[in-house]
Simulated assay, not measured.
Amino acid sequence: MDDGKAISALGQALRRIVATITAMAGFGEEQTLLRRQRNTILRLLRPAESATRRLIVAMARGLAVHLRQPSPARPRRLGPKPQTRRWPLVLSLLDPQRHRQRRRWVRRTSVPRIMHLGLAAALPLVCRPLPLPDDVLDAAGLNARLAALNGALADMEGRARAFARWQARQAVAANALGAIAAGEPAPARLLRRALRRPLRIGRAPGNSRRSPHEIHTLLAQTHTLALDALAPP
């Protein structure tokens, strides 16, 4: 089976799974979820986002795009800033970068009990409650991520063209970086764009080898297609 048929089959399977996740979350109806419900949805949403991102990368292979010339810098406007328009959340075409050090949450059980002169009793100790499975949490952010994922699946061709334009801009930045003299320092913005990777090195975000869910099989297949699309000719 060629890449076109594989991408079409994987896209249909991915849309079916995302529709199931959307039904589980009650998208557009419930603005709150229990903690156990939210954790279950997130365990499926993360690999679904990664699989969609990799499917878009595979679709962008060989697309010819035209980059617009950068517009000249506009003079700075004085006075109050105009009201900014709120744009909806869009699925990122690049994998989120790894955090070097994660901040671990530790339950505070004791603090130094310092007494001051003239203070009769010690200050009360306020402890953060332990997270429970039945805690009611806000689901607005989860609904926004689901909306972005459904929007990306509905416009796969448009998102693939957007990724092809990003690749073209990255190639321009790499060429400009190579043209800079060896002794001249490169601009930080140009260096970040030239060295930015679209996919993480190693396992895809949300990948789980122990989970038997179908989404992880789709993620492995889309990951292989994306790596083949990004490989140099």
Rank of each mutant, 00 (worst) to 15 (best):
D228N: 14
A220Q: 07
Q101E: 15
P185V: 09
R74N: 13
A25Q: 09
R128F: 06
D135W: 01
P96F: 07
R46T: 14
A122D: 11
L191A: 10
Q170A: 06
A19W: 06
R86S: 15
R108E: 01
P185L: 13
L149D: 04
D3M: 00
P129W: 06
G183F: 01
L63E: 10
I201S: 03
A179F: 03
A58C: 00
C127D: 04
A152L: 12
E157F: 09
L10S: 07
P82C: 05
R159F: 14
L230I: 02
P70I: 04
T32N: 10
R107P: 03
R35E: 05
T32M: 13
V126E: 13
A188V: 11
L34Y: 07
E30Y: 07
E30F: 07
I180H: 08
R68M: 13
S110N: 09
A58G: 03
N39H: 11
I215K: 01
A140I: 14
I17S: 10
Q37A: 07
T32Y: 12
A122G: 05
D3R: 02
I114R: 02
A176K: 08
H213I: 04
R196A: 14
E184W: 07
L149P: 08
A188T: 07
R169A: 07
A6I: 06
A152V: 15
L119G: 02
R98V: 09
R61V: 01
V106G: 03
R54V: 00
E49V: 13
A122V: 08
V126N: 04
E214H: 06
P129L: 06
P133T: 09
T84Q: 15
A51K: 01
P129G: 11
D95W: 02
R210K: 04
I215W: 01
G4F: 09
V172P: 02
H213Y: 05
R38W: 02
L33I: 03
G206H: 08
A139N: 08
P198V: 00
K5L: 15
L190I: 12
A121S: 10
H216G: 05
P131L: 10
L130Q: 04
F27R: 10
A73M: 12
L63S: 12
N207C: 02
V57T: 01
R193I: 02
A220W: 03
A171C: 14
